[in-house]
Design a protein around this nucleic acid. Structure first.
Lengths: 141, 141
DNA sequence: GCTGGCGTTGACGTCGGCGTCAAGGTCTAC
DNA sequence: GTAGACCTTGACGCCGACGTCAACGCCAGC
């Protein structure tokens, strides 16, 4: 199977596949003419990558899963390293969700206050600003 | 007040202030020597921007708030355009949170299945992959 | 006058995950 | 033999919000 067909079957593009190869994530054998040659197993690897990406995993995070499959294990998550990535991701998701809920509450508060102010009902002067950390992390220092 | 002092007082950098000016977000008057000159009102504008940024607003989304203050209103969210941004942001947050919770459930499911498989308990062969849309939106088409 | 600490503009680098173009090679069908 | 559908590598573009460097101007104190 050549690159175009694999891309089509996985619902992605040739550019993406070359990029993955460049990262060493999805290496390809070569045919005599220099064309990349893939097989059904590569399609599995690729699908593993895409599935994880759909979950928000970065490409580097998918690497343990791919290597696990390449090592001959039945599933990409049959290896300890993959499970560890799952654990880290779950923690990350929890933190992210918590932060977003926090932000949502703060924004809703600001919104309500602003609407009440607009309606003439001068509530508390709003005190000080909420000063959160928010979604796309600024919680560096 | 010059750019360095304003940056210090707002806890940001001069590069950031020049960038905001470049966007037309925080224009500066000029002293005779070409130095940017700011006053306390600019500090307010800047704090408004930073507060919203901490909530995850993009710079362009802060523009209505800044313009509202510049127009002389008591608060950045005293104007309809700002309230509209609040509304959009709340909807965006809700969607994002929902999606993340969805992803979290799917990842947790995968994790549990993998752990059970590892422990020898061959549960259902896992059927097909979850195939979600996930956090950083891939839900394009 | 000279050092040091401010300021100025301009331009390139960063991060991820590719898109898009350019200039060519390869293979198949007609 | 030639069109056109594939493939190759290389390189630049994009998004947002700045960081960082270069090369220079301005000003205060010694």
């Amino acid at each position: 199977m050549r690159i175009g067909e694999l891309a089509d079957r996985a619902g992605t593009t040739t550019r993406t596949l070359r990029y993955y190869e460049q990262l060493g994530l999805l290496p390809a054998r070569r045919a005599g003419n220099g064309y990349r040659a893939y097989d059904e197993e590569d399609l599995r690897l690729l699908r593993q990558i895409r599935t994880l990406q759909d979950f928000g995993f970065g490409l580097e995070e998918t690497r343990p899963f791919v290597e696990c499959l390449q090592a001959g294990h039945p599933e990409g998550d049959s290896c300890p390293a993959s499970l560890e990535v799952y654990r880290r991701k779950l923690a990350e998701l929890d933190e992210c969700i918590t932060r977003l809920q926090d932000v949502r509450a703060q924004v809703a508060g600001q919104f309500d206050r602003a609407v009440r102010a607009r309606d003439g009902l001068a509530a508390e002067p709003s005190g000080q600003a909420p000063h959160c950390e928010l979604a796309n992390e600024r919680a560096k220092e």
